[in-house]
Amino acid sequence: MIMTTTAQATKTAPTTTPARSIARLLLHGGTVFALLALIVFFFAMRPDVFLTFVNVKNILFQVSILAIIAGAQTVVMVVGDFDLSVGATSSLAGAVAASLMLTGVPIAIAITVALGVGLLVGLVNGILIAVVNLSAFVATLATMTSVVGLAYLVTAGTTLFDLPDGFNNLGQGRLLNIPLPVYFAIVISFILWGALRFTTIGRRWHAIGGNVEVSRLSGVNVRRARLLAFTIAGLVSAIGGILLAARLGSASAVQGGDNMMFSVAAVFLGMTVIKSGASNLGGTMIGVAIIGVMSNGLNILGVNAYVQQVVTGLIIIAAVTLSSLKTRQR
């Protein structure tokens, strides 16, 4: 049996030239190579700074909140949708927690309510998309608009500050000299990775992302699975927003709004990491690392912020092109 398979494989395997192998390697590992190339480049430019403990810690601290929100985005993108409201939901959750704490509500209750708000926003997204059958773009654009308005109402257009030390410690505290948000990001990423890889719902999400009709015909409750994906995305975004408020010691209606764009970029970057070209959490984390390393490295080299933005866009274009090449190859 084994011999037969081997013989068939040998018979059908296309002849590969070294150039073709390198092209294939680049195609499959382009994003990882890009990350390694960036690290090597910045290390070569500033060997005294770039890979020091202080700077690596700095990069991890800067990307920890984005990693959490990108994790939320990955869940919905695995299902084949996307969520434009993750940044707004995170801002609202931070604002709700802050405003409650400022009125004397205990930290734990304020955080629970804020998580509930995130869960609710995710649930509304899920209902609009999975039950009412609106497109994810329209539905999450609409909820993003309303959620930003709600955040303005909660904060009265101001920045809420003077939050309790116990709360601020969640974002500013350290364990073994590593900021706590880094640990939170790692734990949440592992939980999401495990859920996507080892649970029934995770496999259903992947199946729906691969082909909705086939999943439906295979007996998957597509509606419920999509609803759950958006609800979890809302909850995880809220965790990101609460940690951002704790990290800055303040909350405003627009805080962390750019996390939406970067989270989508990270997932797209990560889609090129695996052979199938689908969203995956490991890839997303590599995407987050690329964004963080690039921003930090360019800042260290003193590159103008506008140039940084252009470079970020170009890298995303390159990643999406790689991803589409892969899909075509499939």
């Binding site: 800055l248 627009v254 805080q255 709004g257 933005q309």
Partner: peptide, 11 residues
């Protein structure tokens, strides 16, 4: 040093 957006000015 240029901040790109007032919304994310603090970060």
């Amino acid at each position: 040093q240029k901040v790109k957006s007032p919304a994310s000015g603090r970060t």
